[in-house]
């Protein structure tokens, strides 16, 4: 089994295998979500400390903004992919 996995790994490096395409997208989306949410949280915390007397809601709002942004990007990327697929098959 070690012999068979080796070429697959090498192939994944050069070009993602077709069955892993969707997973790749999901990975990217999740990472994006985490980063954006964290960024939003950070901004929210800073704002809450600086402007809003350490209230909690600015932090949540920041997280929400980040998550929303990530969601939207993921959505658009998926839709783009779907469009490409359709064009390719048509």
């Amino acid at each position: 089994m070690a012999e068979t996995s080796a070429p697959v790994a090498s192939r994944a490096v050069s070009r993602p295998v077709s069955e892993a395409l969707l997973n790749e997208k999901w990975d990217r989306c999740l990472s994006n979500l985490i980063i954006k949410s964290t960024l939003g949280l950070g901004f929210g915390v800073v704002f809450s400390v600086l402007l809003f007397k350490r209230r909690a809601w600015p932090a949540f709002v920041g997280v929400g903004f980040g998550a929303g942004r990530a969601y939207e990007e993921c959505n658009s990327s998926l839709k783009q992919a779907a469009k490409e697929i359709r064009k390719h098959q048509a």
């Binding site: 077709s18 069955e19 395409l21 969707l22 697929i85 359709r86 390719h88 098959q89």
Partner: peptide
């Protein structure tokens, strides 16, 4: 197959 399914099974 078609759509995403076909794209995923292309390499196979």
């Amino acid at each position: 197959l078609n759509g995403w399914a076909k794209t995923l099974s292309r390499d196979w």
